[in-house]
């Protein structure tokens, strides 16, 4: 008797978190949809889930959304990749050479505390609204997480492990492959996760400001046109991309560095 009831209970219990989360999301959209039956909202200011879903499908079907996303993806890639390359190199040098660290630490802290996004208008005026202007904004926002994390990663490399590998007859190459890279990589990937979020801010700032295409521009334009369903659809697209990128990196972290689980 007890056995018969046990598996069902444990299924609910095991998937409790997912089920409750799913339930809450469904409830949220249902409540949103149902609210329109009760309150006569002005459709110029709010849309409802079924219309947003339709707009989403339409925008994908006629290729508008993918084109906008494609336009935004270019500066995102340029800015993000160059931020990664520059940030990792600078961070590693700052971590490895103590004096370089001393010299650059305060400077980087000041830069990081400064809302560099405030220079966006200047960047746009100087570089224009094309790829380069956006890429520079994205670079300036996302380079710092790479710098700080690469530096912290190098400094956290266990000196004891270095001695262990050396005492076992390891070469300089072994040192890099077996100790330093595995030690630093998790920090860099964690930095990338933070940098993705900041790069997304960069693309939005760049495109809200003065663009004629791109996903950020689409959101602003649909807002101006009071096309709320399409606006929400684009916002949704950004949310999905942001979640996929962030959670994707988080998942990769767990898969690639299982020894760091729990940090």
């Amino acid at each position: 008797m007890q056995n018969a009831g046990a598996p069902r209970e444990s299924f609910l219990e095991r998937h409790r978190k997912v089920l409750l989360g799913l339930l809450a999301v469904l409830l949220f959209f249902a409540a949103w949809q149902a609210a329109f039956l009760v309150v006569p909202f002005n459709p110029l200011f709010i849309s409802k889930p079924n219309l947003i879903a339709k707009a989403f499908v339409d925008l994908i079907a006629d290729g508008d959304m993918l084109r906008d996303l494609g336009v935004s993806a270019m500066p995102f890639l340029y800015g993000f990749v160059s931020a990664a390359v520059v940030g990792i190199v600078v961070g590693i040098v700052m971590g490895w050479r103590v004096r370089v660290g001393y010299a650059l630490d305060p400077l980087m802290t000041v830069f990081y505390a400064t809302p560099l996004v405030a220079l966006a208008p200047l960047v746009i005026v100087f570089f224009g609204v094309g790829v380069s202007g956006k890429a520079i904004i994205i670079f300036s926002l996302s380079v710092f997480p790479f710098i700080f994390n690469a530096q912290a990663g190098v400094r956290a490399v266990d000196r004891l492990l270095i001695n262990v590998v050396r005492s076992l007859g390891g070469s300089e190459w072994d040192l890099y492959v077996k100790v330093i890279v595995p030690g630093v990589l998790p920090y860099i990937v964690a930095g990338a996760r933070i940098a993705v979020g900041r790069a997304l801010i960069g693309i939005l700032v760049g495109e809200f400001f003065a663009a004629s295409e791109g996903i950020g521009y689409a959101i602003a334009r649909f807002g101006d046109l009071f096309a709320l369903d399409k606006m929400f659809a684009c916002i949704l697209a950004i949310m999905v991309i942001a979640i996929v990128l962030t959670e994707g990196i988080r998942w990769a972290e767990r898969a690639a560095f299982p020894w760091r689980v729990g940090r």
Binding site: R16, A24, M231, M239
Partner: peptide, 28 residues
């Protein structure tokens, strides 16, 4: 229970740059 229910929303909003809502907020 509340934690399990709100978690997806927090994950979603935390991953998304909140700036994306700016045009909407200005509209409102």
């Amino acid at each position: 229970t509340l934690n399990d229910m709100i978690d997806p929303f927090i994950t979603a909003f935390n991953a998304t740059p909140r700036l994306v809502f700016l045009p909407l907020v200005m509209l409102w």
